[in-house]
């Protein structure tokens, strides 16, 4: 792995990170890059390998192969953990202690001044319930205590795994605002989530993981891509050929029986013109509509286990290109 200094551009870098459990590959040659100061969304469906990856970043589990650098150190080393705050899966605390006492124990372990306890409890709006026993906390309060514990060290890197789980809508909004606020300045936040709008609202960049593989990575705008024209027409292959011939069309791909047309940056395709071209060529147009770009559609396209794309098929992927691949028409039959 490259040697990172404290001021290096990458706070987290994984190289071909792989974790297998027997025959099952939970994380598959993952190359993840999180830059200093950004809020990075780690997006994927349940069971995609997000939490396994985060556990490896924290040294809780060892990779089967591949390399990891966290804040320039190996994962789980005292050097990286001292500057990292984390909440992984459900927050785990001593049930018989109060929220405040739990943080007192952790502050001792992290050698953090006790004065930070009230500060972080206040940040997550839990100060008035600090004396309550943890086992009596609601799920939302437990989540907030988990975030407070992660903030205790005032860390350079904050790793949060599904932090809005169990929160009510108002709590979710507050938590997202807090995460955004925490990501200001030089602090880096790695936010794992399966909620597309959460990542869309909160993050600067995101990586999408499916079946243990990173299928896309880039800024939210990169991942969203442009709006697309969606056409259902017969014969489909003729319609596809016509669409590809139109000037300014960057990509025409077949997704679940419909042709999805994207244009080159700056180019616009008039739906009326497309319709006229198709009809003029004897193609029967059954549907023609504009599809607005959303992370949700990208996410669903990328993480559908039956239609996982080949690497490099999507904009934003490190190996990405804009050519039309043969496999895109493979499901016509």
């Amino acid at each position: 792995m490259p040697d990172h200094t404290n001021h290096g551009p990458h706070v987290i870098e994984t190289r071909d990170l792989t974790r297998r459990y027997g025959e099952i590959t939970a994380v598959d040659t993952l190359n993840l890059t999180v830059r200093r100061g950004e809020v990075y969304g780690f997006l994927g469906p349940n069971g995609a390998g997000k939490t396994t990856t985060l556990r490896m970043l924290l040294g809780l589990i060892r990779p089967t192969s591949g390399g990891i650098a966290v804040l320039g150190s190996s994962p789980g080393s005292a050097g990286s953990l001292a500057r990292t705050g984390a909440m992984i899966e459900t927050p785990a605390f001593y049930p018989h202690l109060s929220g405040g006492d739990n943080l007192r124990v952790l502050a001792r372990y992290a050698a953090v001044d006790a004065s930070r306890i009230d500060l972080v409890l206040d940040q997550v709006r839990l100060l008035d319930r600090a004396g309550d026993v943890f086992r009596e906390y609601s799920l939302g309060m437990k989540q907030r205590l988990g975030v407070a514990a992660a903030l205790l060290k005032d860390p350079e890197l904050l790793i949060l795994d599904e932090p809005t789980n169990g929160l009510d809508p108002a709590g979710m909004t507050e938590m997202r605002a807090l995460i955004r606020e925490l990501g200001q300045g030089n602090r880096t936040v790695l936010l794992s989530s399966h909620l597309m709008h959460e990542v869309e609202q909160t993050c600067d960049r995101a990586g999408i993981i499916a079946a243990g593989r990173l299928v896309a990575e880039g800024t939210i705008d990169d991942l969203l891509g442009e709006d697309a024209l969606v056409v259902r027409a017969e014969p489909t292959l003729d319609a596809m050929a016509i669409a590809r011939d139109i000037a300014g069309v960057r990509r025409a791909s077949l997704v679940r029986g419909a042709i999805r047309i994207k244009t080159l940056p700056g180019a616009e395709l008039d739906p009326a013109y497309l319709n006229a071209r198709l009809v003029g060529a004897g193609v029967a147009v059954r549907e023609l509509r504009l599809e607005r770009a959303s992370l949700e559609s990208v996410f669903l396209d990328l993480t559908n286990p039956n239609e996982l794309p080949a690497r490099g098929d999507w904009p934003g992927h490190p190996d990405g290109n804009d050519t039309i691949h043969d496999e895109e028409v493979a499901d016509v039959a």
Binding site: A92, F93, Y94, A110
Partner: peptide, 18 residues
Amino acid sequence: GWDTLKTLFTQGPGRGRI
């Protein structure tokens, strides 16, 4: 049982010292 090892082990001192 409480899953608190993961919380302790991410605090920094190292498993041996904990």
